[in-house]
C-alpha cells in the first residue's frame, strides 16, 4: 500500500480515538490540560512508531519462522512493555529536559490500546517494515491531533453552563461524539479523490 494513503488513512479516516475507539482512557484522562495533552501525544507518537517497527521485526524474524504466530498477543505486549521501560531509561540518561516533559506519561502508554492495536493491525494487514513504521507514526499523529483539539474544546466547556449531571466526563464524551461526526467527512472516497490512481 502507498505510504501516503496509509498516513491519511490512520490520521483522518481511521483515526484511533474517533473511529476505532483505541486510547480512550488517556483521551478522557489527560485532555483537560493542554500541556499534558501535548506531552502524552508526543510520547505516544514516539512509542507507537518504534514499537510497530519492532513488533514487525519480532513477528517476521521469530514468530513466523517458528510457526507460533498465535503467541503474538503475549509477545507483542512484552515487547511493548520492555520498550517503554527502555525508552524511559534512555531518555532519562540522554535528555533530562525531554524526560521531564514526557516522563510521567511513558508508564501509562503500556496500557494504551492504540499501541498494541497498531502492532496487531500492521501484522494483520501484512505491512512491510517501512509501512508499519509509517502506520505507527501516523496513528500517533492522529492521536495527538484529536487530543489537542479536545483540550481546546474542554477549556471552552469550562466557561459554559452545563447541566449538573453532564459536567466533566459526560459532556466530554458528547463533545467527542460531535467531533467524530465531523470526522465522518473524511472517508476513503476522499482519499481516492485526493490521490487518484494509488
Amino acid at each position: 500500500m502507498n505510504l501516503i494513503v496509509i498516513f491519511f488513512s490512520f490520521v483522518l479516516v481511521n483515526n484511533f480515538i474517533l473511529s476505532k475507539f483505541m486510547g480512550l482512557c488517556p483521551f478522557i484522562g489527560v485532555s483537560q490540560n493542554r500541556e499534558s495533552a501535548v506531552g502524552m501525544g508526543f510520547a505516544v507518537i514516539f512509542v507507537m512508531s518504534i514499537s510497530s517497527l519492532l513488533t514487525w521485526a519480532v513477528y517476521h524474524a521469530i514468530l513466523a519462522p517458528l510457526g507460533i504466530e498465535f503467541l503474538k498477543t503475549i509477545v507483542f505486549i512484552l515487547v511493548i512493555a520492555s520498550l517503554v521501560q527502555l525508552v524511559e531509561l534512555v531518555i532519562r540518561k540522554l535528555s533530562p529536559a525531554l524526560y521531564k516533559a514526557l516522563g510521567i506519561y511513558l508508564p501509562l502508554i503500556t496500557t494504551n490500546c492504540a499501541v498494541l492495536g497498531i502492532a496487531i493491525i500492521s501484522v494483520d494487514e501484512n505491512f512491510g517494515p517501512l509501512e508499519s513504521f509509517v502506520a505507527g507514526m501516523s496513528g500517533g499523529i492522529g492521536f495527538l491531533m484529536v487530543l489537542v483539539i479536545m483540550s481546546f474544546l474542554r477549556q471552552k466547556l469550562l466557561l459554559e453552563k452545563v447541566p449538573a449531571p453532564f459536567r466533566g466526563v459526560p459532556i466530554a464524551f458528547i463533545t467527542a461524539g460531535a467531533m467524530a461526526l465531523a470526522f465522518m467527512a473524511f472517508n476513503s472516497s476522499m482519499i481516492s479523490n485526493l490521490f487518484p490512481g494509488v
Partner: peptide, 22 residues
Amino acid sequence: ATPAGALFVMGFVIAGINALKA
C-alpha cells in the same frame, strides 16, 4: 450505529448515572 453515536450514548448514560447518584 456509527462511532460518533457510541460516544453520544456513553455520555448520556454516564450523565444518567450521575443524575441517579445525585
